Computed example of a mutant assay.
Amino acid sequence: MASDTDLIKLYSGRILALAADIPHRGRLENPQASVKKRAPLCGSTVTVDLDVEDGVITRFGQDVKACALGQASAALMGAHIIGRSRAEIETARDALRAMLKEGGDAPGAPFMGYEVLSPARDYRNRHASILLSLEATAEALAEAERATACA
Protein backbone atom coordinates (compact mmCIF):
# COMPACT_ATOMS: atom_id res chain seq x y z
CA MET A 1 0.00 0.00 0.00
CA ALA A 2 1.31 3.43 -0.92
CA SER A 3 1.97 5.90 1.87
CA ASP A 4 0.68 9.46 1.83
CA THR A 5 4.24 10.63 1.14
CA ASP A 6 4.44 8.37 -1.92
CA LEU A 7 1.21 9.83 -3.28
CA ILE A 8 2.42 13.38 -2.71
CA LYS A 9 5.61 12.55 -4.65
CA LEU A 10 3.53 11.02 -7.44
CA TYR A 11 1.57 14.22 -7.91
CA SER A 12 4.66 16.38 -8.38
CA GLY A 13 4.57 20.05 -9.22
CA ARG A 14 5.53 19.24 -12.83
CA ILE A 15 2.59 16.84 -13.22
CA LEU A 16 0.19 19.36 -11.73
CA ALA A 17 1.53 22.12 -14.00
CA LEU A 18 1.05 19.93 -17.07
CA ALA A 19 -2.47 18.99 -15.95
CA ALA A 20 -3.37 22.66 -15.66
CA ASP A 21 -2.27 23.53 -19.20
CA ILE A 22 -3.51 20.96 -21.73
CA PRO A 23 -2.89 21.99 -25.35
CA HIS A 24 -5.73 21.67 -27.86
CA ARG A 25 -8.35 21.47 -25.13
CA GLY A 26 -11.90 21.34 -26.40
CA ARG A 27 -13.86 19.69 -29.15
CA LEU A 28 -13.52 20.40 -32.88
CA GLU A 29 -16.40 21.36 -35.07
CA ASN A 30 -16.98 18.78 -37.85
CA PRO A 31 -13.91 16.57 -37.29
CA GLN A 32 -13.07 13.76 -39.70
CA ALA A 33 -12.89 11.39 -36.72
CA SER A 34 -13.90 11.38 -33.09
CA VAL A 35 -13.18 8.71 -30.46
CA LYS A 36 -14.11 8.60 -26.79
CA LYS A 37 -12.19 6.25 -24.49
CA ARG A 38 -12.89 5.46 -20.83
CA ALA A 39 -10.65 3.92 -18.19
CA PRO A 40 -12.91 1.40 -16.44
CA LEU A 41 -11.13 1.38 -13.06
CA CYS A 42 -11.19 5.10 -12.39
CA GLY A 43 -13.79 6.41 -14.84
CA SER A 44 -11.43 8.85 -16.58
CA THR A 45 -12.50 9.74 -20.12
CA VAL A 46 -10.81 11.35 -23.09
CA THR A 47 -12.59 12.36 -26.28
CA VAL A 48 -10.36 13.11 -29.26
CA ASP A 49 -11.41 14.88 -32.45
CA LEU A 50 -9.05 15.21 -35.39
CA ASP A 51 -8.55 15.82 -39.06
CA VAL A 52 -5.90 14.13 -41.19
CA GLU A 53 -4.28 15.13 -44.45
CA ASP A 54 -1.60 13.11 -46.24
CA GLY A 55 -1.39 10.75 -43.27
CA VAL A 56 -0.69 13.36 -40.58
CA ILE A 57 -2.86 15.16 -38.07
CA THR A 58 -3.74 18.68 -39.21
CA ARG A 59 -6.39 19.62 -36.61
CA PHE A 60 -6.78 18.23 -33.12
CA GLY A 61 -9.00 18.73 -30.10
CA GLN A 62 -9.35 16.82 -26.86
CA ASP A 63 -11.84 16.83 -24.01
CA VAL A 64 -10.08 15.37 -20.98
CA LYS A 65 -11.91 14.34 -17.83
CA ALA A 66 -9.23 12.48 -15.91
CA CYS A 67 -7.04 12.52 -12.85
CA ALA A 68 -3.97 14.76 -12.83
CA LEU A 69 -1.87 11.90 -14.27
CA GLY A 70 -4.22 11.42 -17.21
CA GLN A 71 -4.37 15.17 -17.75
CA ALA A 72 -0.56 15.44 -17.67
CA SER A 73 -0.31 12.67 -20.23
CA ALA A 74 -2.84 14.43 -22.47
CA ALA A 75 -0.85 17.66 -22.12
CA LEU A 76 2.41 15.97 -23.15
CA MET A 77 0.75 14.41 -26.18
CA GLY A 78 -1.08 17.60 -27.14
CA ALA A 79 2.13 19.59 -27.16
CA HIS A 80 3.48 17.47 -30.03
CA ILE A 81 0.40 16.16 -31.87
CA ILE A 82 0.03 18.36 -34.95
CA GLY A 83 1.87 16.88 -37.93
CA ARG A 84 2.18 13.39 -36.40
CA SER A 85 1.40 10.13 -38.20
CA ARG A 86 -0.38 7.06 -36.89
CA ALA A 87 2.93 5.18 -36.73
CA GLU A 88 4.39 7.90 -34.48
CA ILE A 89 1.32 7.87 -32.22
CA GLU A 90 1.33 4.07 -31.96
CA THR A 91 5.08 4.01 -31.23
CA ALA A 92 4.62 6.56 -28.43
CA ARG A 93 1.62 4.65 -27.04
CA ASP A 94 3.50 1.36 -27.04
CA ALA A 95 6.58 2.93 -25.41
CA LEU A 96 4.43 4.58 -22.72
CA ARG A 97 2.70 1.27 -22.02
CA ALA A 98 6.09 -0.48 -21.75
CA MET A 99 7.40 2.29 -19.47
CA LEU A 100 4.47 1.85 -17.11
CA LYS A 101 4.09 -1.92 -17.17
CA GLU A 102 7.60 -3.23 -17.87
CA GLY A 103 9.97 -0.51 -16.68
CA GLY A 104 10.88 0.47 -20.24
CA ASP A 105 12.12 3.83 -21.46
CA ALA A 106 9.79 6.80 -21.84
CA PRO A 107 8.63 7.64 -25.38
CA GLY A 108 11.29 9.42 -27.40
CA ALA A 109 11.15 12.31 -29.83
CA PRO A 110 8.87 13.89 -30.75
CA PHE A 111 6.91 12.84 -27.65
CA MET A 112 9.36 14.02 -25.03
CA GLY A 113 8.61 14.50 -21.34
CA TYR A 114 6.72 11.34 -20.40
CA GLU A 115 9.45 10.34 -17.94
CA VAL A 116 7.69 12.67 -15.46
CA LEU A 117 5.02 9.94 -15.25
CA SER A 118 7.47 7.13 -14.43
CA PRO A 119 6.60 7.21 -10.69
CA ALA A 120 3.12 6.00 -11.71
CA ARG A 121 4.60 2.57 -12.57
CA ASP A 122 3.73 1.45 -9.05
CA TYR A 123 0.10 2.57 -9.39
CA ARG A 124 -1.44 0.10 -11.84
CA ASN A 125 -4.89 1.58 -11.29
CA ARG A 126 -3.64 4.80 -12.94
CA HIS A 127 -2.08 3.22 -16.06
CA ALA A 128 -5.29 3.21 -18.10
CA SER A 129 -5.90 6.91 -17.44
CA ILE A 130 -2.33 7.77 -18.46
CA LEU A 131 -2.68 5.81 -21.72
CA LEU A 132 -6.12 7.17 -22.68
CA SER A 133 -5.09 10.15 -24.79
CA LEU A 134 -2.62 8.22 -26.95
CA GLU A 135 -5.02 5.29 -27.32
CA ALA A 136 -7.93 7.53 -28.32
CA THR A 137 -5.74 9.43 -30.77
CA ALA A 138 -4.45 6.24 -32.42
CA GLU A 139 -8.03 4.99 -32.83
CA ALA A 140 -9.27 8.32 -34.17
CA LEU A 141 -6.41 8.50 -36.66
CA ALA A 142 -7.16 4.98 -37.90
CA GLU A 143 -10.85 5.93 -38.18
CA ALA A 144 -10.02 9.05 -40.21
CA GLU A 145 -7.76 7.06 -42.51
CA ARG A 146 -10.52 4.49 -43.12
CA ALA A 147 -13.03 7.24 -43.87
CA THR A 148 -10.61 8.89 -46.29
CA ALA A 149 -9.89 5.58 -48.05
CA CYS A 150 -13.63 4.96 -48.54
CA ALA A 151 -14.33 8.45 -49.88
Score class of each variant (00 low, 15 high):
residue 97 R to K: 15
residue 149 A to M: 14
residue 73 S to T: 12
residue 26 G to S: 06
residue 145 E to N: 06
residue 141 L to M: 14
residue 85 S to K: 10
residue 18 L to C: 04
residue 15 I to D: 11
residue 142 A to T: 10
residue 23 P to D: 07
residue 95 A to D: 15
residue 30 N to M: 10
residue 53 E to H: 13
residue 26 G to N: 05
residue 52 V to G: 06
residue 113 G to M: 02
residue 45 T to K: 07
residue 1 M to C: 02
residue 1 M to Q: 08
residue 100 L to M: 14
residue 123 Y to W: 03
residue 133 S to A: 15
residue 82 I to L: 10
residue 151 A to W: 05
residue 144 A to G: 07
residue 60 F to W: 03
residue 12 S to R: 11
residue 61 G to F: 06
residue 110 P to L: 01
residue 149 A to H: 14
residue 127 H to A: 05
residue 89 I to V: 15
residue 130 I to W: 00
residue 136 A to D: 02
residue 135 E to C: 00
residue 40 P to Q: 10
residue 91 T to V: 12
residue 71 Q to C: 11
residue 56 V to W: 00
residue 56 V to M: 03
residue 48 V to R: 10
residue 5 T to Y: 10
residue 68 A to S: 14
residue 79 A to E: 04
residue 12 S to F: 02
residue 52 V to N: 05
residue 104 G to W: 08
residue 98 A to D: 14
residue 96 L to P: 00
residue 51 D to G: 12
residue 22 I to G: 07
residue 93 R to G: 09
residue 119 P to G: 06
residue 140 A to C: 03
residue 135 E to K: 08
residue 66 A to Y: 10
residue 124 R to P: 01
residue 29 E to K: 00
residue 98 A to R: 15
residue 96 L to D: 09
residue 102 E to H: 15
residue 85 S to M: 12
residue 11 Y to H: 11
residue 67 C to N: 01
residue 74 A to K: 00
residue 35 V to M: 12
residue 69 L to V: 02
residue 55 G to Q: 13
residue 137 T to P: 15
residue 28 L to C: 07
residue 112 M to N: 00
residue 52 V to P: 08
residue 19 A to E: 03
residue 11 Y to P: 04
residue 70 G to S: 01
residue 91 T to R: 06
residue 5 T to K: 05
residue 9 K to Y: 10
residue 38 R to Y: 09
residue 101 K to R: 13
residue 21 D to R: 14
residue 76 L to S: 01
residue 59 R to G: 03
residue 43 G to F: 04
residue 85 S to D: 08
residue 83 G to E: 05
residue 145 E to K: 03
residue 55 G to L: 12
residue 91 T to A: 14
residue 116 V to L: 11
residue 61 G to V: 11
residue 76 L to K: 02
residue 141 L to V: 15
residue 15 I to E: 08
residue 67 C to Q: 01
residue 41 L to K: 09
residue 28 L to Y: 05
residue 124 R to L: 12
residue 135 E to G: 00
residue 32 Q to R: 01
residue 150 C to G: 01
residue 65 K to Q: 11
residue 16 L to N: 11
residue 113 G to I: 00
residue 52 V to A: 12
residue 139 E to I: 04
residue 69 L to Q: 04
residue 100 L to P: 05
residue 14 R to Q: 12
residue 32 Q to L: 11
residue 11 Y to T: 02
residue 73 S to E: 05
residue 125 N to H: 07
residue 92 A to R: 07
residue 3 S to D: 11
residue 48 V to T: 08
residue 90 E to T: 07
residue 6 D to L: 12
residue 50 L to Y: 06
residue 89 I to K: 07
residue 140 A to R: 01
residue 147 A to H: 02
residue 97 R to I: 09
residue 97 R to F: 15
residue 88 E to W: 06
residue 96 L to W: 14
residue 130 I to E: 00
residue 14 R to K: 15
residue 2 A to E: 07
residue 14 R to D: 09
residue 67 C to E: 02
residue 104 G to V: 07
residue 117 L to D: 01
residue 35 V to S: 10
residue 131 L to I: 08
residue 146 R to V: 01
residue 45 T to W: 10
residue 40 P to M: 10
